[in-house]
């Protein structure tokens, strides 16, 4: 696997405030890295350093072997970058703006027009090409920002909150586009929308106060939750007391919590002992006892819980 992006002790301070504190990461071709963190964690500052906009206080980043501190222009040629909020020249038309970007990227004449036409097609911008950017909706503006970032088909794509402000259909479209491009590129997405991580990212890095707090797949993050193997059973209220008494005595179960559900049903949530619970074993035991369960499912918490836990310091270990 080719390492294409390397963060090497990347740090940035603004006066006394340390926004990004010694981040080390390597990203290989084909990875879609979700860069997560609470607001103010240092996501945008990191993106700005990797894109060559801000100079790191110490450390550096390398893109395909080019150092962003010593060879910023070479790095800028290799990346497509969509800044936060996708700022673009409001007084220009979409077409004029994309042509300007294409020229700066080194295309002219027919090649330039073909590139603009292709990204307009891919991002569904053909209807607005002749309109000034200032009159466009947020969704269109975001897609203009995306269009300029992929115009030169860069090996590395940095997208700062690419689906912010898009409606569900547009989000689906942009995620499809990212998935389509992923195999040949490195794509780094900064976001605080966690569903995005499950939808498109092969890897998630959570940062908080400028440090890497967790690094792994979505499943790895979920495994951080202490009750990540918990199981819930939904059953009629009449059967709840008997079932709870039985389940509480199973060897893997630490505790059973009852919560009333709708239509006279009860939800029993079984939290695990240290070894964890296998949902299949619970299902088998429930069947053997003829407990009239309506639903049995893994209920270990979601990425939101994992994110909260990791970023509020609930989990002590830090990824190596």
């Amino acid at each position: 696997m080719t390492v294409m992006v390397e963060f090497d002790h990347l740090s940035k301070s603004f006066g006394d405030f340390c926004a990004v504190d010694d981040i080390n990461l390597t990203v290989t071709k084909g990875e879609v890295l979700g860069f997560l963190g609470p607001n103010g964690a240092g996501k945008t500052t990191t993106m700005r350093m990797v894109s060559g906009f801000l100079t790191p206080t110490t450390g550096t980043a390398r893109i395909c072997g080019h150092d962003v501190v010593s060879a910023p222009t070479a790095v800028k040629r290799l990346i497509g970058y969509m800044p936060e909020g996708s700022p673009s020249y409001d007084d220009m038309t979409v077409s004029a703006f994309l042509k300007f970007i294409a020229e700066i990227r080194g295309y002219s004449g027919a090649e330039r027009d073909a590139r603009v036409a292709r990204v307009a097609e891919r991002l569904d911008l053909r209807d607005v090409l002749a309109r000034p950017i200032e009159v466009l909706s947020k969704g269109y503006r975001r897609r203009v920002g995306l269009a300029q970032s992929i115009l030169h088909d860069p090996p590395v794509l940095l997208l700062d909150e690419p689906t912010d402000g898009l409606d569900p259909n547009q989000k689906h479209q942009v995620r499809g586009l990212i998935a389509e491009m992923a195999a040949e590129k490195v794509i780094i997405i900064s976001t605080h929308i966690l569903e995005e991580v499950e939808a498109v990212c092969t890897r998630a890095v959570i940062i908080g106060r400028g440090k890497v707090l967790a690094d792994g797949t979505a499943a790895d993050l979920l495994a951080r939750l202490p009750d990540h193997t918990a199981v819930s059973i939904i059953l009629p209220a009449a059967a709840a007391a008997h079932a709870a008494a039985f389940l509480r005595n199973l060897p893997a179960v630490a505790a059973v919590f009852e919560t009333p559900g709708e239509k006279g049903r009860i939800r029993l949530r079984l939290t695990p002992k240290a070894g964890g619970i296998q949902v299949e074993e619970i299902a088998a035991a429930v069947r053997a006892q003829n407990i009239p369960a309506i639903e049995i499912f893994q209920d270990g918490g979601d990425l939101d819980d994992a994110f909260r836990l990791i970023t509020t310091g609930g989990v002590s270990q830090v990824a190596a």
Binding site: R48, G52, F53, K76, P83, G85, P87, I101, I104
Partner: peptide, 14 residues
């Protein structure tokens, strides 16, 4: 003011 400086200076221009 509009933030386009970030767009401009992350293009391959000095």
């Amino acid at each position: 003011k509009s933030g386009t400086i970030e767009q401009l200076l992350t293009l391959p221009v000095t």
